[in-house]
Design a binder for these strands. Sequence first.
DNA 1: TTCGCTTTTGTTATATTATAACAATACATA
DNA 2: TATGTATTGTTATAATATAACAAAAGCGAA
Lengths: 134, 134
Amino acid sequence: MTTQSFTATKLRQEIITILAAAQKPLKAYDILSLLRETRPNAQPPTVYRVLEFLKNKDVVHEVSRQHTYVLCQNAEAGTEHEANLLLICTECDTVTEIFEAQLSKPLKKFSKQYDFAINCSTVELTGVCQQCQA
Amino acid sequence: MTTQSFTATKLRQEIITILAAAQKPLKAYDILSLLRETRPNAQPPTVYRVLEFLKNKDVVHEVSRQHTYVLCQNAEAGTEHEANLLLICTECDTVTEIFEAQLSKPLKKFSKQYDFAINCSTVELTGVCQQCQA
DNA sequence: TTCGCTTTTGTTATATTATAACAATACATA
DNA sequence: TATGTATTGTTATAATATAACAAAAGCGAA
């Protein structure tokens, strides 16, 4: 997967900056609150539209279990489409994104076996992270 | 994983029956509507509580991308905890549940590598199913 | 059985997440 | 400049989910 380019409008940049500064997944309405510091009249559709757009560009991942959105950590990375995992800690709510070619193999196998054309192999695993295991 | 037993109250049975009859994932409010055929005054918390309960018993899976709930297809199955995949077709919205020991291996590897204690290895893959590829 | 405890369900209200629909603006290009 | 397209603004509302407390049902021990 090569990173797609896109028109980096002021609004999109601002939302990317907000996500980058947070260093963790944010809820849409958290993003909205932060956005309102510079755009007091911003409304939900503004945020949701940009998030949808950035998701399609693989710049943002939605963590559907948490209803949160996180900046993709490898925007510049590899040329091969690798399986993408999100490790979601249910204690501290941190999300770690990992890329793992080894997962691609079994997934491709399923793809063939069930004749299922995988579009999105983002995988969310929930559990307890290292720090929270103490 | 051995199937946990639980108190099969009238309400829980009714919701399980609704899900079984549907043969596809249902939204909480769809379940509520169906439940109201026999319990006209049923309210959202009644449904959400039972779904939460049945999820914890591995009787129901939540398909978080769709905000739907589906009856686990292997309630009786194996004694070993196998990785569990949901194949979600974005065309027809069908969800196929598959169990695949081969996925367990790479997942366990991540678990060690990142010192992440996986609670829930339910994995949702989105794409296009066989029938919709025509 | 009756008491006390726990689990389950009922009920009211409200919080949270997300989108529809249409208007206005910006941007590109012939 | 005129024309079309993409983006953003704005209002309203839909869809999803939970808090908080009350009532009822189930169950074991005295």
